[in-house]
């Protein structure tokens, strides 16, 4: 904007005349950065294929965003990092062994259909990356659940299994799981560090926690969804997860396995598809936790985080409508 040389050139706009320097792009790129530790671990653990699969997802996402925005005559917004983040998340939710067409088609489903056809950023009902993954899981159930052995980086460690810990638990129970990992202590250690089969970005709980702590520190997420989600899973797993009756389950095992950490910290907290108020977010998190455990314990799939979040996405607008923020001064008046 040109400097007002003359009085007649003074700018007249309504207040406020100052804005914070926060932008959508900065948020999206920061969240992408916070996924880096978990992604790097995935590459280290699963090898170059992890890079390949994720790169295909990101390229597919960016291309889909560009394509639909061009076709519908809207402004192309690749720079805001939103499509990149969707691609990265989708990639981290894929097995490293996925053939090339799965990342490409799912990223198109995620960005073009789930997000852009609903109106673009801010208007999608469902988490794009999760819809992309759900589509892939239903379309290519085999390829999406074949967990290859990690690369040689961890030879000697108990990472040879080609079933995920939750898969093993579903098939053979706790006994089988402990058998595969050696003993209980190394089971937990391996789960925490990420030495296990699974989607390429979901395995390392510790790396995901580092990313989550960074986001909390930057205030891009709050504790409400992750804590209520994880807390619900822990309580319900403890109560109903055991074979020996009520309160004999293993909450730690459930917390450390599957896509729970990735889902609770990075997917359920997606601004667009979760409720906006803090109270609503706690309700949302509890709902995600209940559905996750219901699917893990009682349904055909070993893992339920993805479907749990997607189902709760449907309820987010309703939660917002019924759990509005507390208006200053309203309670006292209502009490009269």
């Amino acid at each position: 904007m040109a400097v007002a040389k003359k009085e007649q050139e003074l700018l007249v706009t309504v207040s406020p005349h100052i804005r914070s320097d926060e932008t959508v792009g900065r948020i999206m790129w920061t969240v992408s950065l916070s996924l880096l530790p978990a992604f790097v671990f995935g590459v280290y653990y699963f090898g170059p294929k992890a890079v390949y699969v994720t790169a295909l997802c990101i390229v597919g996402s960016l291309f889909s965003e560009w394509l639909v925005q061009k076709m519908t005559g809207r402004e192309v917004t690749l720079g805001d990092g939103s499509a990149f983040l969707t691609g990265l998340l989708l990639g981290m939710n894929m097995p490293a062994s996925a053939p090339f067409y799965i990342p490409l088609v799912s990223s198109f489903v995620a960005v073009a259909i789930t997000k852009q056809l609903f109106g673009g950023i801010g208007y999608n009902i469902f988490n794009p990356a999760l819809i992309g993954r759900a589509f892939a899981l239903i379309t290519w159930p085999r390829a999406m659940t074949s967990w290859t052995e990690p690369t040689a980086a961890f030879v000697g460690l108990d990472a040879k299994t080609t079933a995920t810990p939750l898969g093993l638990l579903k098939e053979g129970g706790m006994q089988k799981l402990v058998e595969v990992f050696g003993d209980k202590a190394s089971l937990y250690t391996d789960l925490l560090l990420g030495h296990r089969a699974g989607s390429l970005g979901e395995t390392s709980v510790i790396a995901l926690l580092v990313g989550g702590a960074f986001l909390l520190y930057k205030r891009y997420i709050t504790w409400h969804i992750p804590v209520s989600f994880l807390g619900t899973v822990a309580v319900l797993a403890w109560a109903f997860g055991g074979k020996g009756g009520l309160f004999t389950g293993d909450p730690l095992l459930h917390l450390l396995s599957g896509g729970l950490m990735l889902g609770a910290i990075f997917m359920a907290t997606d601004y667009v598809t979760c409720p906006s108020t803090r109270l609503g977010q706690v309700v949302f998190g509890i709902g995600c936790g209940v559905l996750t455990i219901l699917i893990r314990l009682k349904a055909g799939y070993p893992e339920g985080v993805m479907f749990a979040i997607l189902l709760m996405n449907c309820f987010a607008p309703m939660i917002d409508r019924n759990l509005k923020s507390k208006v200053f001064g309203l309670k006292k008046e209502a009490r009269k």
Binding site: E22, V24, I27, G119, I121, G122, Y271, C274, S276
Partner: peptide, 9 residues
């Protein structure tokens, strides 16, 4: 300006 991303800020 862009769409609301519902960040809740």
């Amino acid at each position: 300006f862009g769409h609301c991303i519902r960040c809740g800020n």
